[in-house]
Amino acid sequence: MTTPARVAVQIQPQHADYAQIRRAVAAAEEAGVDIVYNWDHFFPLSGEADGKHFECWTMLGAWAEATSRVEIGALVTCNSYRNPELLADMARTVDHISDGRLILGIGAGWFERDYTEYGYEFGTAGSRLNDLSEALPRITKRWSKLNPAPTRDIPILIGGGGEKKTLRYTAEYAKIWHGFGDSETLTRKRDVLDKWCHEIGRNPAEIERSAGVGGTPDEVAETMVAAGITQFTVGVSGPDYDLGSVRDWVAWRDDFNKAAASA
């Protein structure tokens, strides 16, 4: 593995007051994580369906001011909820507020309740993916027109595993791919992504591979590294935001990268 291992935490903005979320973000940065994500939904995805919940991008603007080292972003932004040019401008603004620490995570969207209660057309999985394919070049084109320009080439993270469309878009536009499933599934998706990269003439090594981790490093790290994963994301929910597992992964990351550097 040539890419250093990185650890992320997804602070799920559900079942908590904002003060608790803010403290969790500060604790995660202090614990040494590389990236802090939230998610882009309007209602909780687990627990009480109508529990406390906060909006994604206004929160990212606050995190940009409240943090100083970690990268921040959504895992992932729903493409359907914002005009692509507006999203590009929002991302550019948070990029500047954070001094160049924003990751633009984006996906086609899937949570039907968000759509129906907020008045968006849900459509089909295919139509949402087609919308994503149209949005990505509009986002990158808008970045080239904004004044001031983004502070850096904002990394795009695409989440999903669709082999015909999502992974092709990833090969074309993303610097990070976030996959789902066990190590066997991730290995298969990795190979499909590599194939798309070769087809369009891109070096697959340019794309960082990311996945969520539900177990301890001793349980799952070896097989996920073998699947090509280098970014390991732990999800935590409110109101408690227990970071015990996150700290275990940070310690594993440090040991792993030290061993890799000396090999």
Rank of each mutant, 00 (worst) to 15 (best):
W57F: 13
W57Y: 12
H96K: 03
R142C: 04
G244K: 09
G215S: 10
G47F: 05
D240M: 04
G107R: 11
A205N: 11
F54W: 15
F43I: 11
V33Q: 08
A26W: 00
I72F: 12
M59A: 11
G119S: 01
Y241S: 06
P84E: 08
M1L: 04
I176Y: 13
W110A: 12
A24S: 06
E29C: 08
T140Y: 00
V36K: 00
M59P: 00
H198V: 06
D40S: 02
W110G: 13
A49C: 03
D248N: 12
R142K: 05
D254H: 12
G235S: 12
V94N: 06
G32Y: 01
A16K: 06
G123P: 07
V25H: 02
D242N: 08
G47R: 12
V70H: 03
T3R: 10
L167T: 04
R82D: 08
W196Y: 07
K52H: 09
G119C: 01
E163P: 15
D131A: 07
S133L: 10
V225G: 10
D131H: 13
A28H: 00
A108H: 12
N257W: 00
V33I: 08
Q14K: 15
H198G: 14
G126L: 05
T3M: 11
I21E: 15
D40A: 03
K145V: 00
I21F: 05
T3A: 13
I154R: 03
E172K: 01
L136G: 09
A259C: 01
L167H: 06
C56W: 09
N79R: 08
D255A: 13
I35F: 10
G159P: 12
A5R: 07
G161N: 13
K175S: 10
A19K: 01
N147I: 08
T93I: 10
T233Y: 08
A88K: 00
T166N: 10
I139G: 05
Q14V: 08
D114P: 06
V250P: 03
A74S: 10
V76R: 13
E208P: 09
R202S: 13
W252P: 07
P155C: 05
W196E: 15
G32H: 04
D153R: 09
G201N: 09
R188W: 11
V225Y: 02
W177C: 01
P4T: 06
R82L: 11
G100I: 07
T77E: 04
C56K: 11
D182N: 14
V225C: 06
S262Y: 10
V36L: 03
K165I: 09
V25A: 10
Y120R: 04
D50T: 14
P4D: 13
I72P: 03
D50A: 15
G61K: 01
E29V: 03
A211I: 05
A91G: 05
G105E: 14
I158S: 01
A27I: 07
H178A: 02
R152E: 00
G109C: 05
T58D: 10
L87T: 09
G119L: 01
F232E: 03
V94H: 06
T223N: 12
W63F: 15
Y120G: 02
